[in-house]
Amino acid sequence: MTETTGNLHVMNRAALTKRLVAGLKNREAVIGGIGNSNWDLWGAGQRPENFYMLGSMGLAAPIAFGVAIAQPARRVFALEGDGSLLMQLGCLSTIAAQAPKNLAIIVWDNGIYQITGGQSTPAAQARTDIVAIARASGIASAAWAADEAEFDVLVARALTTDGPHVIGVKIDNEPGRNQTDRDPIRFRESFMRAMAEPV
């Protein structure tokens, strides 16, 4: 695990999302954040344990946290962009305070609002360290993934040790390639049915 942003390899969200999903063997829930986080989750292979959010920017981690509270035996991942997390930084304190052992938040950090035209985030301009914010919020297991191998190690840790975990990943600015369907009732139905299955 890597503590600082000084020597981070820039990775690709689509490739890492595939890497993550391929390693999920126990009906883990995955909550995709708005836009590209969701689209790459969709492109990594649809599974009923995935929840594809619509326009509630910033709420991927809170939704995942809710799933984690309801089902302590199931591991739950939130996939969230840096711009989205900036909209809801307070949730890191809420999650730290409740300390759900089965929750992991992966933050895709490209420093831009890619979907609206690539404008840089205030955090990028100010060199804000989002993983350091998570740690300062009280989430002790918060680290940057320096490269793909370290990403795998951190995901393995999130699957096998008590959380909450935050994994920061510096990514390139490649847009998501596979847009989700926009069918919220179907997504909710299939996700709820999947959550009703034992882990």
């Binding site: 946290f65 809710g66 799933v67």
Partner: peptide, 9 residues
Amino acid sequence: GIVTGACMA
């Protein structure tokens, strides 16, 4: 968001 996630689970 939290209550929505919990309810679905």
